[in-house]
Structures are given as C-alpha cells and as structure tokens.
Write a protein that binds this DNA or RNA. Structure first.
Lengths: 225, 225
DNA sequence: CTAGGCTATCGACATTTGCCGATAGACCAC
DNA sequence: GTGGTCTATCGGCAAATGTCGATAGCCTAG
C-alpha cells in the first residue's frame, strides 16, 4: 500500500508540467505543514516553499524521492488516517464497519471470536491488522476499483467480512480482479458457498471462512477484541 | 492505459536508488535502442548512455518526463506490441481469440455482425478498436488482476466477448473491480442475464449486449470484418 | 577485411539545482 | 499589544545537471 501511493505520487510529480505545484497538492492532501515536512527532511521550510512555488522548474529525482518518502512517513506517524484514505472520512455505502487492531491479531483468534470455520484449504496461520465489514451487493455497486483504498483503509492486512452473501462468487471475483488482496475473507451467514468461490480463495491463497453470525453480531463480537 | 504505464515508469525511476539503471531497464523492456530514443528526444545517443550509466545521480523531472514520454511514444509507433504486453506473446488459458481492427469500427457494426442486441440501456454509439473472446469461467480462474493487460492487449477500446456465461455476474463484477474498462461487453449465448450484470453495465457505462452465437461462430463472423 | 549499428566514456562548459539564512506578511490566541 | 505558527520571497553560491562532440570498443553481415 505505501509503496503504491509513493509510486503514484512520484509518478504524478514527474509527469506534471508543474512538478512543484503537484508536490504542494499532495502535501496539502496529507495535511502536513511545510515546517513539519522540512523537519522530517532535516532542512528548512523555505526549501519546501521554494520547490512548491516552482522556483525550481525541474526538481531532481533525489529531492522528489525524499519529499515523497517524508510525506508518507509523516502520514504513517499520524496513523495514516487522512492521506491514504484520499481524504474521505466517512464510509461508502456498503461499508458497515471497520477497525484497525491495536496489535496484530492471529486470524485464528478472529475466527474463534466469530465461531467461524474455514471452507477452503488455505492455511489460516497469519496475522490480521484489522477488518472491514461490507454489505456485499451494495459494496459491489457502490465501490469501484479506484476506491478500494477505502475498503482496505490503512492496511490490506485485514479480513474482509461480507454479509448478504448467497453463493459468495461476486466478492471473490472482485477480489480476484483487483490488484490488492486481503489477508482473509469471511462470509457472514451466507447461503451455500459456491465451489468457484472456494477455488478462487485457493488460487489467491486467501483463507475463506464462514460464520453463522449476521453483520451486527459480527461487529459486536469484534468490538471486544 | 498509456497514462498509467507512464506514471508507473516515472514513479519507479524516481523512487529507485539508481534512477539511471531503472531508465535502462524500462528502455530494454520496450526493446528500444538508445539511438532511436535519442532521435525521438532530439538529442544524441551519448546523452542517453550517460544517464543510463548513472553519470547523473539525480536526473531532473524534466528529463525523466521526456525520456518516459519518448519511450511510450516509440512503443506506440511500433504497435505497442511488446511493451504494454509485458512480453508474453501467447494467449492465456481462457482467451479464445483476439484481434485489433485495422481501423476503428463502430460498435453497432460489430453488433450487427453478430446479430447481437443490447440488454442494458447504455448508449452503443462508440468505436471499437478490437476484441477479445474469452471463456468466462476459465478466464476468471486463470487471469488475475496483474495480467489484465493481456486481455486488453494494445487497447482497452475493445469489446470483451464472454462465452460460457450463465448469468453474466462474474464477468461484470471482475470488470467492475478492475481499473481498466473495456469499450463494450458481449455475452455469447448466455443463460438468463442477471439484473446485477445489467446494473453494473449501467453503473460503469459499458454497453452490454448478447448474441445467440457461440464462440467459434463469433470468431468466424468477426474474422470477416 | 569494411561498413553499419549499438553503446560507453569523458572533457568541456553554460545553466540550473540544492540549500541556507534573512526578512516579511498573514493569521490567531492570549 | 506580543508571541507563535505558517508560508513566501530572494540573495548568495557551491555543486550538480544537461548537453554536445570526439573517440573507442563490440558485434554482425556482406
């Protein structure tokens, strides 16, 4: 995730006819001050200001790299709340709940919490840093590829928990088609899980589990973790 | 497509500890000579060589932009065959056929050729530059997000024609979840097209059509275009 | 062997970048 | 009013870039 946003920012800056302005745009998106960034880069604010106001028409790769790294590092220090979310603080239609754990949590613990059991043969031995609960049909309609960052929030090391799932094909197909992959998928109170869903979970090496709980109970159970 | 690859290359170059070497790697991936690139940039080959051998530790944004633009422009002149395909010449399991038209073709002509009719309300008034025929279930299992470039080949301005389709949900969900979008989707001899498929076509503004022909007949009909 | 294509190295030098510090302006809270 | 925060502008200057041309080496085909 971080590597991707860094690459995107750097790419945009270089390709911009006004690299300095693009740098400023991104800093403001992240809501970081020139002073804080200057401190992070171990320089002075007027350096940042000069670049951002296009005093230098063609900043070098070295500077751009340090600037972008500084932005992303500072954002991480602030919990990655604003920047990586693209500045949209509220949840999209289809996202029922979302949380980051304070510490990495074994998937097994999460599964136990939800009385969830595996339906594919993918090994459950991995850690989860958070979860997102989604209403599957609504999410598919309202969240397209460019906004998956919202589903994943700060980390893809999360469980995606889909409710209102009949056969589970559409969520697994969507995950298959998108470059970012979650750490696990859990279907809340599904119908009969289709064999394609299971095969996709195995192809992608993403554990697939089901729980009899519905979304509100899932959120409640995970609140206590 | 082009904008995305440009951004990716530029981003990689800037973030690389060895920008010059990364430039070289990409030029070689595209199979473009220093001489040809130098000509495109209206400079001399020793300039390219100096940068690529890291004589300049921190090339400026201006040069990187021109270099990347030059690569992509030259690749386009060569039909975009090698670079954008990632150098995989053979078709993946699931791709039954694929072609670029010599000239842009109205979608209506393609539809007429296949006796296809629209099932969603999206306007058909657009041009197609080519098509890919896919076996839907096999494609979904064998082609993940990172290899969609293969499905699209040179241009996303194409019709994706899916065979072995029951309700048409999975193909539309996959398209929904991926950043690149085709110009049209045609289901060859589907079962009953599900309302979700139709809604996704409308949300994405991608025309959705069906034809009674099976894949071999489709390929045959389109061969004559 | 020669010719052509491709690439590498390096001297040269005009131009630009990278970075700092001094100064100034705007805004807000006390 | 003062103090603090944030940002902008600009002079100064060492260091690096951007670009060219000359030269050289390697490989292949005829």
């Amino acid at each position: 995730m971080e590597a991707e946003i860094r690459e995107k920012i750097a790419g945009e800056v270089v390709l911009s006819p006004h690299p300095g302005r693009t740098l400023r745009k991104w800093r403001e998106d992240f809501r970081i001050s020139q002073r804080d960034l200057a401190k992070q880069l171990e320089t002075v604010p007027s350096v940042i200001s000069d670049y951002e106001s296009e005093r230098r028409a063609s900043p070098g790769a070295g500077f751009i790299r340090r600037y972008v790294d500084g932005l992303v590092a500072l954002d991480a220090n602030h919990g990655g709340r604003m920047g990586l979310r693209g500045g949209v603080p509220s949840h999209s239609d289809g996202i029922l709940g979302m949380r980051e754990f304070a510490v990495a949590m074994p998937l097994k613990s999460v599964a136990d919490r939800l009385d969830a059991r595996a339906v594919s043969r993918v090994d459950l031995h991995r850690d989860i840093h958070g979860f997102t609960v989604l209403d599957a049909p609504r999410a598919i309609l309202s969240i397209d590829a460019s906004r998956f960052a919202e589903v994943y929030g700060w980390t893809t090391q999360r469980a995606l928990i889909f409710s209102n799932v009949r056969y589970g094909r559409s969520p697994m197909v969507a995950i298959r088609a998108h470059p970012l992959k979650p750490a696990a998928v859990i279907f809340a109170s599904p119908g009969r899980v289709d064999s394609l869903a299971i095969r996709l979970s195995e192809v992608e090496n993403i554990p697939l589990l089901t729980t009899a709980l519905h979304a509100p109970a899932v959120l409640e159970r995970l609140e206590e973790l």
